[in-house]
Structures are given as C-alpha cells and as structure tokens.
Design a protein around this nucleic acid. Structure first.
Lengths: 218, 218
DNA sequence: TTTTAAGGTGACCACCTGGTCACATTATGG
DNA sequence: CCATAATGTGACCAGGTGGTCACCTTAAAA
C-alpha cells in the first residue's frame, strides 16, 4: 500500500486557523493565476513571507497542496448546490435550470479564484488526478440534472424523442458556456456579460431559459 | 520600430520542403501535447534529432515558432470555412448551422493536433498574443453567423425578440461544446460522442439542430 | 532551570528551461 | 583546388524548478 500524499500533514492542522487560511489563500491565488504546472512553490512561500521548508512541513509536496486546495473548492460547490436546491422547492424543470444558472453566477462572484482553478484544470494536462477532480465537480451537474430530467420527461415537460443524456448535455453546455463567458469575457463573442448590471444579466438569463424551454418542450 | 519575431527566418524557407514539414510536425505535436508554456524547445529538437542551434537558425525564439504553427492552423481553418460555405449554397439558416457543425467535426478528425492547440490557447495564459490569436479564430464564427443571423431574422426565421448577439452566442456555445466534447471525451457527460459511429453522430447532430430550431424560431 | 520536542529556516541539490556562440561541416562558385 | 559563405552543432550560460536537511528558535514539560 503506497502512501497517498493527499492530505495535509498533521502539522498543518496544528497551525492557528488564521495561518491556515493565509496559506490556503496564497495557494489558491497562485493556482488560479498560473494553473497547476506553472504554479510555483517558491512564489507561494514568497507571497506568504515564510520559508520553503515550512510549507513542506505542512504538505508532502506541491501535489498534496493542490489537492487540498481543490478539496476546499469542491466543499464550497457542494455547499452552494445544497443551498440552491433547498431554496428552489416547487419550481418546474426550467425554473430549476434558471436557479442553477443563477447559483453558478453567484459562485463565480463569490469565489472567482476557485472558478479560475476549475477552468484551468479542465484544459490543462498532467494535473494530478485531473479526470477524477473534473468528474467530482461535473457529477454535481449530472446528479442534479439527471433525475430532474427523468422526472420532467415523465411529466411531459420534455419532448419524448429527446434522450435525457442529450437534454443534460445541452443544458450543461449552455449553462457552462454562460458561466465561462461571464468569467472569461473574451469567450462571450461581444455579448458583454461580464460588465453587465445584475438586472440586464437576469434578463439575458431569462431569455436563454425561454429559448431552452421552447427548444426542449413538446 | 521594434522587431516583431513573428515570422520564421529566411533560412527556414531555404530548407527542403520535407524538412520544413518535419519541423512543423514536431512543433505541432509538442504544442498540442504540452500547450505553449510547457512545450519544450529541447523536446522538439530531440524529436527531430537536430541540434538546438539549428532550430534557432530557423526561428528567432520559441514564440516565433509557436506563432508560425498557429498561422498554419488559421490557414487550415480558413480553407475549411471557405469549402464549407461553397458547398452549402441555398440552405436555410439552421441547415447552415448544421453544416458548420459538421465542418467542425471534419476539421477535428483531420487536424486533431491543431484543435488541441486551440483548446490549450483558449485556457492557458501568457500565451504570446493569446487574445489576438483567439479572436482571429472566433472571428470566423462571428463573421459567419453574424450576417447569416441578421438575414434569418429579416426573413422571419428567428424570434424577433432575440438579439442577434444572443443567437450567435447560443449557437456558438452549443457548437463549441459539441466539438469540445467530441475532442475531449470527459466533457461530454456520458454522451459518448467520441466513440460514436458517423451515423449515430449525425443523428445526434440533427437532434441538436432541431432543438435549436424549435428554441429560436418564432 | 534544564530537557525535550516541535516548528521554522534558507542554503543547497539535481534537474530542466530558453537562448547563445565559437567552432565544425558542407555547399557554392571562381 | 581553394576561398567564401551558409548551415549545422552541442557545450555552455543564467535563471528557474520542486524538494531536502542540518541547523536554529521557540515552547512546553519535568
């Protein structure tokens, strides 16, 4: 049985919480700006003003530090999903989709660096356990929309000739791109989502949802 | 006026065409696998079995080599777009969209490494002139769909309350994600586009186009 | 106060990077 | 056959990387 290097060393948890948070913040900032490969341990300790040896007393290596950061990210996602689900009881399928999109926007606003890290992981390679990490996040989407979609189909809210897999794919594609465009302005093809007022943004979202509704309903 | 380092040195074009192609191929492979930053000049010359000094006689630096590679990519894209436009005279808006999607699939099949490079450029930073390069490619999409969309709207094929920018955004999002899922299987959420037979793939495409049609038509 | 353990440090290591340059090799043309 | 120019070469450079470890400081226990 090999050692796994996934978790911080015990010394990390002995640190006063404020210091733990500082370290996490510095690592998050570095990984968000540089991605995994280009992120530099030297740069992280420089940000923190601590010695490199110290950091290696908290984490076995760069990979363990990164995995810890990503763990915190998925924790936040889980939280947000739970909150969103709780708040939107009783909505129909497309209103739920709308809520999911809004929740995504909120997440980006609140944790822009985590979202940057996620985007980098999506398209970088040689990120340790990339597929597992990506899957871990996407699962939220699949697990959320999958059953909802089955239900919606039974209730006749979706065209019967559309497979649920395709519906989920289309929803996921649209929502994901919307969020990516929001976070990376050069992806939005002149739509200007990033600089938009909250009201205009909501209006655009409503239009998108309407298009989806018309496209997917019987 | 600074020097620009964009083009290969004249020595490169003095090389026998076969050698030029070898060099290009090695560079393409390396950039496709590693992205810009992680791509290693050492690795490229190792692939080629030539001395590093030689490569630096053909190109001023890594950046110039990369820009040359990307130039070749945009040339191919331009070609493909032209071909696709020529072949699909007389189709309506949504059939043209279908053609564009098929053309994209063909491109990925024919030049998978170029597409990988493009995806990497999209999400890597500190790629030299990234925004310019991305814009250069996306312009094809905007210039292609923009006017088409205006026309379709005048002809009453699109809901009047949808702005052309939003329509282009939605088309672009769906098509782009479809292509990304095709090239990067872990993005397709279990749809399994990558391993699909050409017929099943076309069937999925037709379904997607139908959804778009229902969503966007009056 | 002394002993012992934990936490903190930064010089150092091997390795890799993009880029250079004095030199060797080859081709050209007089 | 020689002179000249063009092409090819790889040891070398400065600078960066992730990671180590003998040493120092601090704090708690005895």
């Amino acid at each position: 049985m090999e050692k796994c290097f996934t978790e911080p060393k015990p010394t990390f948890f002995n640190l006063p919480p404020e210091k733990q948070e500082n370290i996490l913040a510095a690592a998050v900032a570095e990984f968000a700006e540089q991605g995994y490969q280009r992120a530099s341990v030297n740069s992280i300790v420089r940000r923190l003003g601590i010695a490199k040896g110290s950091l290696y007393q908290y984490f076995d290596n760069k990979e363990a530090l990164f995995l810890h950061v990503f763990d915190q990210f998925t924790r936040k996602v889980k939280q947000q999903v739970k909150k969103s689900v709780a708040e939107s009881q009783g909505h129909d399928f497309f209103l739920l989709t709308r809520e999911a999109l809004l929740a995504g926007i909120d997440f980006i606003v609140e944790y822009p660096e985590f979202f940057q890290i996620y985007l980098k992981v999506l398209f970088e390679q040689d990120v340790p356990r990339r597929e597992e990490l990506v899957a871990r996040v996407r699962l939220f989407s699949l697990e959320y929309f999958g059953p909802l979609c089955e239900l919606a189909k039974e209730q006749g809210m979706l065209r019967q000739d559309l497979s649920c897999r395709l519906v989920v794919f289309l929803l996921d594609a649209t929502l994901d791109r919307f969020l990516q465009a929001y976070a990376q302005p050069y992806l939005d093809g002149g739509l200007g989502l990033a600089g938009m007022s909250r009201e205009r943004l909501h209006a655009e979202i409503d239009t998108v949802i309407t298009v989806l509704r018309n496209g997917l309903q019987p």
